[in-house]
Amino acid sequence: MIECPSCGRRQQPLLICADCGSPLAATLDCFAALGMPRKLTIDLGALERRYHELSRMIHPDRFASSVARVRDASLRATATLTRSYRTLRDPVARGLYWLELNGEKLAENNKRVPPELAELVFEVQEQLAGMHDAPADSDAACELAAQVVARRSQLQATMDASRAELERNFVKWDQRPDEKMLTLELKAILSSIAYLRTLIRDVDRALENSKAA
């Protein structure tokens, strides 16, 4: 239960007081904060409309002249709202959050290479090392850099494909949310996306460094 800082009414945790419409600094999960069903598939248009509607009601700009207690509630409620919206809007962040809600988590620093990516990862690392060792400005270095750029597009394409697969599977998983197998599948795709993301960042950084050198 939470008490409204404006009218004092005690109520179920929500971002808006059911009585007076003032903001409430409740601790809520992302789906509840936005009043969306706890599902992996989300209507992004509806999500945005809901977000804008709630923002109009609780944003600190609406309470600039209120007492400190109400201003503080508005600040905290809006922080919860924006964070929830960001999480749900992005399919990968949403998937990860959904796992967390179901008591699952990706391995902390995700060192293990997902098996289906092993070969690709090996090749990328080989190329990066080569680029690092090649004398700066040499023909070999330029050649390697060009190869790495091509490799980056390949990684990006693989990642886009994984994201598309993720969203396709959302529908399937939503129908049978309790099956352990499905959770494992979700976890596998999310790990490989997370892994690809780190890899792409490493590639970008290596390219950046070689340009700076």
């Binding site: 804008h52 923002s55 109009r56 944003h59 700009d61 609406r62 600039a64 002249s65 924006t82």
Partner: peptide, 16 residues
């Protein structure tokens, strides 16, 4: 304009 949003005299305009 933002000042008038903060005074509540700018309808439903909101800056995020």
């Amino acid at each position: 304009v933002q000042a008038s949003v903060l005074m509540g005299t700018q309808g439903d305009m909101l800056l995020l």
